[in-house]
């Protein structure tokens, strides 16, 4: 009896802290626009409605007039090509401002704007290059950019690199860039703790300080027959990427109750709606066995 009373008491403390509840979510359905301009000739966009919390299927917007403007000049209308997908034939110009305007019946007008970023000025450079370390030289930069690495199935040098379905995005990557953002680092070092830099989860964000100068740094991961991407991001796309990956990282552990405290918001620049209207431009560096490790 004595033991029973102790257990009853401890049960109270340890296990009775959580209870199911009903809360009325005051959710308003919103229109979601996802469109990121690329230097390609075809621009794509998805248009859907938001769904109740935790519902992972979404309703598409049937009809809409979607117009792209370049520096206030109308470029054209997006055309629906499939479930929730829309396309426009246009090649954006670096440095130009773009605005998107969406008209959906019985909804307020939806708008967003962005600027097409110039590619990062980056080149391979000499250093203690190896299959796991590659040195780069970056010229002064005014916008943040992202680094990630795709390992290719075949050791093939291409004039314009293409990603095949059996290529792999490396989820462990490190670098010694002084402006690397540590928001998605882990407690490990890269290359299963054998590397010299801290491990980032798949992507490295390089911030652009006001006094950015020419920088020489190295990327560290399994670089054998891989493509190193340097993605210049518009301010909007950069904030969207960072907030999205932050949210992913928070939920990257099993049974971690700290995720209960997650209050992170995903960046959006869509007026009267949700989603993203941004832009990026890539510089891709091939690191293949056949290439000279000096970087020349």
């Amino acid at each position: 009896m004595k033991k029973l009373s102790i257990y009853l008491f401890l049960f109270q403390i340890l296990y009775a802290c959580v209870a199911d509840i009903d809360i009325e979510s005051t959710r308003d359905k919103k229109i979601v626009v996802n469109c990121v301009l690329t230097p390609d000739s075809i621009q794509t966009l998805t248009l859907m409605y938001s769904s109740p919390h935790s519902q992972l299927w979404h309703e598409e917007v049937d009809s809409a007039i979607i117009t792209l403007f370049q520096d206030s000049i109308e470029i054209g209308h997006f055309r629906k090509t499939g479930f929730s997908n829309w396309q426009l034939l246009h090649t954006p110009q670096y440095g130009d401002k773009y605005r998107i305007h969406i008209k959906v019946p019985n909804w307020p007008d939806i708008e967003g704007s962005t600027t097409m970023p110039n590619p990062v000025h980056i080149t391979k450079t000499e250093g203690n290059n190896s299959n796991t370390v590659r040195y780069f030289r970056q010229l002064p930069n005014t916008l943040p950019y992202w680094i990630f690495v795709i390992r290719q199935k075949h050791d093939t040098i291409m004039v314009k690199p293409q990603i095949a379905s059996n290529d792999v995005l490396l989820t462990s990557i490190g670098c010694n860039h002084p402006n690397a953002d540590n928001f998605n680092t882990t407690n490990n070092m890269v290359l299963e703790n054998k590397g010299s830099t801290r491990e980032h989860i798949a992507y490295i964000r390089i911030t652009a300080p006001k006094d950015s100068t020419e920088t020489t740094f190295y990327v560290e991961t399994n670089l054998y027959q891989s493509l190193v991407f340097f993605r210049a991001a518009s301010t909007e796309y950069d904030l969207y990427m960072k907030s999205s990956i932050q949210k992913m990282v928070i939920h990257s552990s099993f049974n971690d109750p700290t995720a209960w405290f997650d209050e992170s918001e995903i960046f959006t620049n869509i007026d009267n709606g949700l989603g993203i209207f941004g832009a990026f431009s890539d510089v891709i560096v091939q690191c293949h066995y056949a290439l000279d490790n000096t970087g020349n």
Binding site: S25, T26, R27, K29, K30, V32, N34, V36, T46, M48, Y49, S50, S51, P52, H53, S54, Q55, L56, H58, S84, W146, F148, I150, R151, I163, S165, N166, D167, V168, L169, L170, T171, A202, Y203, F229, R231, Y240, M241, S244, I245, M248, V249, H251, S252, S253, F254, A259, I266, L274, G275, I276
Partner: peptide, 27 residues
């Protein structure tokens, strides 16, 4: 309060295998 379709990080669909993580991360 709600969930909506997002733009996945670049090439997330071909990420390397061997890393196990909760479903919530992929969601």
């Amino acid at each position: 309060v709600s969930t909506y379709k997002g733009l996945a990080p670049p090439y997330w669909e071909i990420r390397s295998s061997g890393w196990t993580f909760p479903k919530q991360l992929d969601d």
